[in-house]
């Protein structure tokens, strides 16, 4: 073991929490949008997808980080992809064994975790540069943030589109389901609305700064 590694910043709680809100992969970094929109027509699907993604994210980041000094620079992306694909194949078979029903609902999107930019992005940007523990902790935070976003979307879509939450009837039978929310357009619109809300909150929080150059901002770029 060589001790020649660069001096690293210590492991703090910030490493973990950054992924959950401040750098939330979906709402702030806009990564891995495809599964976010495709499987969030119910809370259960969102949760299953989130857990599968956490597993792949943590395992692949752990392995990438552990091997970071051995992977040649030129073929690193290919190596990362193959590491990720291995874990996704695992998850694919595990879900098939645990619940075939769920597997059929999620369809190809389990296998499509391979091309989730979030996972490859974290491997490249974080795990390949940081120590094992830090990578695992950060991956866990990112994964939780991703799951949180999925559930936030899935909750709204299921509630409005079917009047249910996790399969339990929330609204009375008089409620006419807003079916479009479960259909593809609903995914875009709900995500757009969450982004608007988050932008609004951010603007309120840092109101001083934004208000100061609001006019300049409006004229430069919409």
């Amino acid at each position: 073991m060589t001790q020649a590694t660069k001096k690293e910043t210590p492991l703090t709680l910030d490493v973990f929490t950054a992924g959950i809100w401040k750098e939330n992969p979906v709402f702030v970094m806009m990564l891995g949008l495809c599964p976010v929109l495709a499987v969030t027509n119910s809370v259960l699907n969102s949760l299953a997808m989130g857990i599968a993604s956490i597993f792949v994210l943590v395992c692949s980041n752990a392995l990438v980080s552990a091997l970071r000094n051995f992977i040649p620079k030129q073929v690193r992306i290919t190596t990362y992809i193959i590491i990720i694909a291995t874990f996704v194949t695992l998850v694919d078979y595990i879900i098939q064994a645990v619940s075939l029903d769920l597997y059929n609902k999620l369809g190809a999107f389990i296998q499509l975790i391979v091309v989730n930019c979030l996972i490859l992005g974290r491997a490249e940007a974080y795990a390949s540069k940081n120590s094992f523990t830090k990578s695992v902790v950060s991956a866990l935070g990112m994964g939780l943030g991703f799951t949180l976003a999925l559930v936030m979307l899935g909750g709204v879509r299921e509630l409005l589109g079917a009047g249910q939450l996790l399969g339990y009837q929330v609204f009375s039978t008089q409620f006419e389901p807003w079916v479009v929310m479960i259909l593809p357009p609903g995914g875009f619109i709900v995500l757009g609305s969450w982004l608007l809300l988050i932008n609004y909150i951010q603007q309120r929080k840092t109101g001083q700064i934004i208000a100061a150059d609001a006019t300049a901002h409006c004229t430069v770029k919409p």
Binding site: F188, I189, L195, N199, I210, A214, P222
Partner: peptide
């Protein structure tokens, strides 16, 4: 456009 629609928020609405 209003400030809060910057970045991807409005693109998502359009896509919807």
């Amino acid at each position: 456009l209003p400030n809060i629609t910057q970045a991807a928020a409005l693109s998502m609405m359009l896509a919807g």
